[in-house]
Amino acid sequence: MSTASLAKSDYETPNRSWYKRNEISVTPWLFLAPAILFFAAYVIIPIFQSFEISLFAWDGLGAREYIGTENYVELWDDPAFYTSLKNNVIWLILYLLAIPAGLFIALFLNQTVMGIRLYKSLFFFPFVISQVVVGLVFTWFYDPTFGLLNTIIGWVGLGPINVLGDPTYVTYGIIAAGLWPQTAYCMILYLTGLNAVDPEQIEAARLDGAKGWRMLWYVIVPQLKPATFIAFVVTIVGALRSFDLISVMTNGGPFGESRVLSFYMFEVALSEYGFRMGYGAAIAVVLFFIMLFFIAYFLYSMYQDERGR
């Protein structure tokens, strides 16, 4: 025993505590603990709980009844589910228009003239406003009796169209409202990206005779790749999170034609139409897997980036 303690005192003074000896390996976990705890309780664990709940019939209050995959079987034959899914696809595709639109506005505003900073801020304005207010603003904009849209197309002898009351137009009308703040967001990403474009490369390309579209596509857009990636991520996430606008503008109507999965889930699980938590959870699981496909891609891209450092 005495030899052992002697050996120890050779490399360490006895008053160094366990914490002191393991400081470098323990500290990160101490610092991570609160965030991980919160994140696990409110985000990670609930994902798995939702998977579980989707296998039950449950009204949120009484006893749960295990019904296996019945919720998913019902979903398979639910026309409202397919309407929502179809609308989700339309949202995803059309929402991506925010990226070229944002780039276009950014190119337009990327000049140095008097007051351009204020112009840039004001163009960015719609993104700062809550989606609820954007929804209200566009509901009035589309209003068939006094809305600005119908007033304007009335001048050229068209209309009136009740955009939000017509099953064929309603989803497009809401997406247009959503594109407004989203385009502003993409614009600001590109404006920042354009600041970092290398002027020497542009000069070199100009000497080589590149101009117009070719200059844009082959010289400028490749240099904006990081901005495009972020714009893509936030636009996809935004499209799949579309809930506020639908809830405020149409509440899913007319005849449920403007529902998307996120809204339909809420309607099934937590609205006057019922408290079917199990069925709602099943819809959420489907939505989760659609998102997971994109999350995997985002993480893969980030991983490549990390390794490149």
Binding site: V43, I47, Q49, S50, F266, A269, A284, F288
Partner: peptide, 18 residues
């Protein structure tokens, strides 16, 4: 990556348990 991935999940998958 756990934090990053969690940040992107749809709200609806958290709704009932939260």
């Amino acid at each position: 990556f756990l934090f990053v991935a969690g940040n992107f999940v749809p709200f609806q998958i958290l709704m009932v348990p939260v």
